[in-house]
Design a binder for these strands. Structure first.
Lengths: 345, 345
DNA sequence: TTGTAGGCGTTATCAC
DNA sequence: GTGATAACGCCTACAA
């Protein structure tokens, strides 16, 4: 087992000082040709690589970015993560991921852990519990310490930091409008409890479109399902009890489930009922019929977040002074049309 | 912006030495009650937290584990990752993820990057390109440096290290046997190019079952699809040109695609053709009909890998000496039966 | 051209 | 009881 070699080892072997070695390996002009050659050859031979930790300590920067997301087994977050990872990598950053599991406590613990020097900045989407609790002190502490933070998707107005979101409200609004123009009149909404800001925004877009077209708002056509739990009976009852000709779901899982139920009840899709989901993932793609779905461009969101974060990190590192300017970037969602809706114009 | 406070700051403020502060915060018996109280109170007030990087440098351990996987937007890997992350977290470890994107070069770069002090050990699944190239020097170097390594799923015999795999061969064998017992005679296999060891193993199980039951092996019933690429035409032709009554696919995406094609061609599932996939993910669950699928227990695999790795890390850290004993743990896959197959006994 | 010294933040050993 | 010192591995301003 050949241990990692350090500057000290090289210095001892070659009988020079540590700083000479350090400079030689940086090809400094200060050092003489022969010594440089000798040292560089030796370093190559023993495959010397500087120790990241030591450099981090010295430079007070780790080139790690911390990502905290509610769930990793979830297409959207996974996609965002890929965007973050890819962009970060091109800039020489590594990514440390922690999963909050929708739990406030885990989010806090993970943040504190990483904030003690492990990372140069955070990218995160709030846990459901955090949004419910509306307690953002852990975020505020981190930003007060001068650690850059970028929130995406699940964000809050109560923390001053950079944000990346999609235009949920507008996307939902546009979808419903298209459904109305296609002649649908009884349009249902299947959503989660509304403490998730994204669901709330999508619901608003839904309501706005109905109002604009003078369609009655029928609360019976709005179904709230528990987030990430089976609830077959609730949804079944919903479709048995109500007549509708279109359904907007705030995620693709709800959409695919509901399509299945509707199909079992004998409805034809999209002739009798049209379906639209959010999160254009693998399910939408392979559903039968294919599910028309709002693509949230997770990867772009991730890249954008990573870019904003890294820019801030590097700016902080150069200028001591810091004018606190925060941006919120909005990614435009796009509708992917498939067979679960009639052709829109 | 209140900067992070260090031992030094506390020492200066309270006019004691750094080592006194360090000891006081560890509640050392050496330090007097009053000084301890004073220091602890001050530390709490200013929310002192030791700097992870400094501790890492001192202790030569980071409490980070490096995970390198071919793809994160992939249900199986995601599930494994969740297992790793959860287990690691309970043991106080963080996880740094790098995605190799099936590329040999990226795998090498990422490994080298992390190996320079950023992590205490690796968990990884080999990139497709690496398996094709059969070049494992980067793995060998890392293990020679004494960094623990656990391979999972995509493993190789050429590297001596701990491994976690599922019994792919046996699982495929069992599935095919069940299909035969259910009266199926022309059983097809849809697989990837065979440099992916998992696909190769599954194919072997398939062949073995056929042989054991004296069924002819018809190479026309074996379809090799390019990994992760659309290939609608290839598969369509396959179903048009061949008669079969069952299909085993090495992943759920292939299975769902094929089911769709078969359905369009007018076959009833499972009456005319039964379908079984590997990777019991979201697609199998929501497919129509539900896809019978081999559950690879990704999460358990991840937990197991993390446990093996962390045990080795901690053992290494205590005993200087190291007897090189490597294990390969085999996770038993289980078959999740759904509507795409006839009821098995 | 090369080396010394100090520091990044922490801990452990040993001296006072 | 408390503090000085050295060390982890690296970098750099300054001396020689």
């Amino acid at each position: 087992m050949k241990q990692k070699i350090t500057l000290k080892h090289i210095a001892r072997e070659l009988d020079v000082s540590i700083s000479t070695v350090s400079k030689a390996l940086k090809n400094s002009e200060e050092i003489g040709r022969d010594t440089k050659d000798k040292i560089q050859a030796f370093a190559r031979l023993y495959n010397y690589k500087p120790n990241n930790i030591a450099i981090s300590l010295k430079n007070k920067r780790t080139r790690n970015i911390g990502v905290i997301i509610p769930d990793i087994v979830h297409h959207f977050f996974t996609t965002v993560f890929r965007g973050i990872e890819q962009f970060a990598n091109t800039k020489g950053y590594n990514v440390i991921v922690c999963v909050s599991d929708e739990s406030f406590d885990k989010e806090v613990i993970n943040m504190e852990m990483l904030a003690n020097g492990s990372i140069d900045g955070f990218i995160m989407a709030l846990a459901g519990e955090t949004q419910l609790k509306k307690d953002f002190n852990h975020l505020k502490e981190v930003t007060e310490q001068g650690i850059p933070l970028v929130l995406f998707d699940r964000v809050t107005d109560e923390v001053r930091c950079d944000k990346v979101i999609i235009n949920d409200e507008a996307a939902a609004h546009q979808v419903v409008k298209k459904l109305i123009k296609a002649g649908r009149k009884r349009i249902a909404l299947v959503t989660t409890e509304d403490y998730l800001n994204v669901s709330a925004n999508r619901a608003e877009g839904y309501y706005r479109a109905l109002k604009e077209h003078n369609l009655p708002i029928d609360e019976k056509l709005v179904l709230e399902l528990p987030y990430q739990q089976e609830s077959e009976t609730l949804s079944k009852k919903f479709f048995e009890d109500n007549k509708m000709d279109a359904v907007l779901c705030v995620n693709e899982i709800f959409a695919v489930k509901c399509m299945g139920i509707a199909q079992k009840l004998g409805y034809r899709i999209p002739e009798d009922i049209a379906f639209v989901g959010f999160t254009d993932g693998i399910l939408s793609h392979f559903a039968n019929p294919g599910l028309t779905s709002v693509d949230q461009h997770g990867q772009i969101m991730g890249e954008t977040a990573a870019q904003m974060l890294i820019e801030k990190i590097e700016r902080d590192h150069e200028n001591e002074v810091e004018e606190e300017i925060f941006e919120t970037k909005i990614i435009a969602a796009t509708l992917i049309e498939r067979a679960s809706t009639p052709k829109f114009l």
